[in-house]
Nucleic acid binder design. Structure first.
Lengths: 256, 256
DNA sequence: GCAGTAACGCGTATGCCATACGCAGTACTG
DNA sequence: CAGTACTGCGTATGGCATACGCGTTACTGC
């Protein structure tokens, strides 16, 4: 299955990705498959959720399913494909968009929803990316982002740019949270971690070479972690303010 | 050396990272080291630059230096440490800040410089991150970012947030460029790649379920890639517009 | 109903990888 | 000149993705 280069859809995509789009006919010949992509991906996701992405190996997934390692390769041509499918599964479909929301409310909801998904699947952020994965849920999220910008009067190019900007931000912020999370798992509370880090820096960074950093370290701003999600809210507001400037500017142009 | 838990600096950091801060005394006893951290990191960086990060293995680096694999472990306790040092080497010190620039010009220059560094060391973006690496060049970049915001009247917390926001954006945009780059290496021009991708999506994405995406695909916006750096310039302008709104708002508060 | 065939599960093997361990040699200390 | 701490490195372990080929199975067309 997985090694069939051109599937029913003739998309040139790996067969397993085609399957994500629902383009699989049950092959006419051969024994009934004892496994399914869904079960494989499910097992892989479960392992990632419990023990982190590095724990996901082909052997480990196979063991969880009670089959041999090599069986998996009948369903997935390579581990990268499994990664893509895991990502798609973690992403899930976007929640329904809020009704009667202006673009800013809609985009805020969209960003928040995306963040929640990422935070509850931190392992997904560790998957090395290799290109725009054109999977159904991914496209559904784009769709919803585009819809949110429908009323802004921005041209198509600008809409894409805004969406890339916002989702890039969400991803980047979530990644920082993930780092903090692993650091915390390694030992201690976030506060302790920040304090330790601040301490180290204070000892290492020469105040003459790095005066501003040194002042900052001295002021203790780094020590108290802000309420959860503050960094996210801050960044999102800045970005949306910037987008608003753009929208109003174009609107003014149009009216002028 | 590398396995000495607490070094001269007593920072609790790995010895090789302490070395990056210049905290190494040549140990009194034992044979003269035939290697140096600099040479090891240099070799690793060279391999990464030519063949990509996955080509960097301990064995490969050792071979490039004409030593045995295990020798490297006298200088570096684990591969992750090598990664951190590679990142630090790739980053380099920030270029001198422009003179007589307002905060916006300064931050723009800062972001652009950061982007250039990342684009000329795309492999560095593939290094799995694990926490805030407190290395000298890293701190130097923060320092410069903070200095750029000196005149804004923002409080320390906000300055940090802005810097995190901007550098997160730069990183995220550069990562997308890196993805495009590997896709292009795999075959064809960026145009071909975009066209192929657009084609695939057009075939897969049901216009009923994804109307906005479908319209976008039909309009051909995705086919023509914009001039290089457009996405970056767009995103940065939006973010800085948003930051400007914040700064002016606080200024107005102060005056009112 | 039977031969052909394609897809199945999987045992085995290859060639990577990071790295633990211990040994022999070396340059310094007292 | 003995002791010692550090060097380079050979060997070994255990993990990894995955190529290959074999026996088996369930369907097809005759």
């Amino acid at each position: 299955m997985a090694d069939r280069g051109a599937g029913a859809g003739r998309t040139g995509l790996p067969a397993s990705i085609e399957a994500a789009w629902g383009l699989r006919e049950r092959p006419a010949k051969g024994p009934k498959p004892g496994l399914s992509l869904d079960r494989i991906v499910g097992a892989a996701v479960a392992i990632a959720a419990e023990e982190g992405l590095p724990a996901v190996s082909m052997g480990r997934v196979a063991k969880a399913l009670g089959v041999s390692t090599m069986s998996l390769y009948r369903y997935v041509a390579a581990k990268d494909e499994l990664y893509v499918l895991m990502q798609e599964a973690a992403l899930g479909p976007p929640p329904p968009a809020p009704r009667d929301a202006d673009w800013r409310e809609a985009l805020t909801a969209w960003a928040r929803a995306q963040r929640e998904v990422l935070l509850s699947h931190l392992w997904a952020l560790r998957i090395p990316v290799s290109g725009p994965p054109a999977t159904p849920n991914m496209v559904a999220w784009w769709e919803q982002g585009l819809v949110a910008l429908e009323t802004t009067g921005l041209d198509d190019g600008a809409k894409i740019s805004v969406i890339l900007l916002v989702s890039g931000f969400v991803r980047s912020e979530a990644t920082m949270m993930a780092e903090l999370d692993t650091a915390v798992r390694a030992g201690g509370t976030p506060e302790e971690f920040m304090a330790r880090h601040q301490n180290t820096l204070a000892r290492l960074a020469d105040p003459d070479r790095y005066p501003s950093v040194a002042r900052l370290l001295g002021s203790g701003v780094m020590t108290q972690p802000d309420e959860p999600g503050y960094e996210f809210a801050f960044g999102l507001e800045r970005i949306l303010d910037g987008v608003a400037v753009l929208i109003e500017g174009r609107r003014a142009d149009g009216e002028g």
